[in-house]
């Protein structure tokens, strides 16, 4: 049973077809990659899945529920987490607060309880803190716990953003270019985290990246896009042999 089913989704902006009839499925423990040249529509697909953009046509089913037409916060509450291509952290807050925000949907206390900081509020905050510490250990963020994220190096910010998504305890994780702009060592670290998330935490992942080596090494299946259209879909080996993919990447597109 697929976790996510995308069926014939089409999205356009005043004439620009950002996504043009894309369909795919993501399995329960799959690491699914989406690749394509700049402007191919990869980020747009993530924006559709997380409710930021509303496509003109198509169907998206996540855990047997239709996603289209729902607000981003409703989709988040259903268990869909993502990271952004350009880090979108809460810049004035510390690493701890950013991670605690990831758990927003898991709290069940109200305003009055928060103001009194008693009973439910206090207990749940302490519980959440313990969970967050596990993520801090897992992503090796301990040294930065109390730093405002805007002061952190880019690579660490990317990791904090991944941590925030994990704190949501997602049932599907979307990663938009997690290693963009990273050096070799940071890339290897991130690759290790991605594999651990899938293998140890059992969370299915959709990965977008321009780093072909990384994608081909990690992914179970790959979807190739060009100008919003689906060029190929298959295992890394199949996709690499596909002449249409080679054409899209080697500039036969003009």
């Amino acid at each position: 049973m697929a976790v996510l089913t995308v069926e014939d989704v089409g999205l356009s902006f005043a004439g620009v077809r950002a996504i043009d009839g894309v369909s795919f499925e993501v399995g329960p423990t799959e690491l699914f990659a989406v690749i394509g040249p700049n402007g191919a529509g990869k980020t747009s697909i993530f924006n559709v899945l997380s409710g930021v953009y509303r496509p003109q046509r198509g169907k998206v089913v996540f855990l047997e529920t239709e996603l289209l037409g729902r607000r981003p916060d409703e989709i988040a509450a259903m268990g869909l987490a993502r990271t952004f291509q350009n880090v979108e952290l809460f810049h004035n807050l510390t690493v701890l607060d950013n991670l605690m925000l990831g758990r927003h949907c898991h709290f069940g206390y109200g305003t009055l309880s928060a103001i009194a900081w008693f009973g439910r509020a206090r207990r749940q905050e302490l519980e959440a803190r313990a969970r967050i510490e596990d993520i801090i250990d897992f992503l090796e963020l301990a040294a930065w716990r109390r730093h405002p994220v805007r002061l952190l190096p880019y690579g660490i910010q990317k990791r904090v953003e991944l941590g925030r998504a994990l704190a949501m305890e997602p049932r599907l994780l979307l990663l938009d270019e997690p290693v963009a702009g990273m050096n070799l060592e940071e890339t290897e670290d991130m690759a290790r985290f991605v594999l651990d998330i899938r293998d140890e935490l059992g969370i299915p992942i959709v990965l977008v990246d321009h780093d072909m080596g990384l994608v081909m090494d990690l992914a179970d299946r790959v979807l190739v896009l060009d100008f919003g259209r689906q060029v190929a879909l298959g295992t890394p080996a199949e996709v690499q042999r596909d002449p249409k993919v080679i054409e899209a990447y080697l500039g036969g597109t003009a």
Partner: peptide
């Protein structure tokens, strides 16, 4: 310092990200 205050700061710092994490 509660979930509510954190959500307020999240909206101030970056509202789209706040919505996407469930606020």
């Amino acid at each position: 310092r509660s979930r509510i205050g954190r959500a307020f700061s999240a909206i101030r710092d970056r509202d789209i990200a706040a919505a996407v994490i469930g606020v």
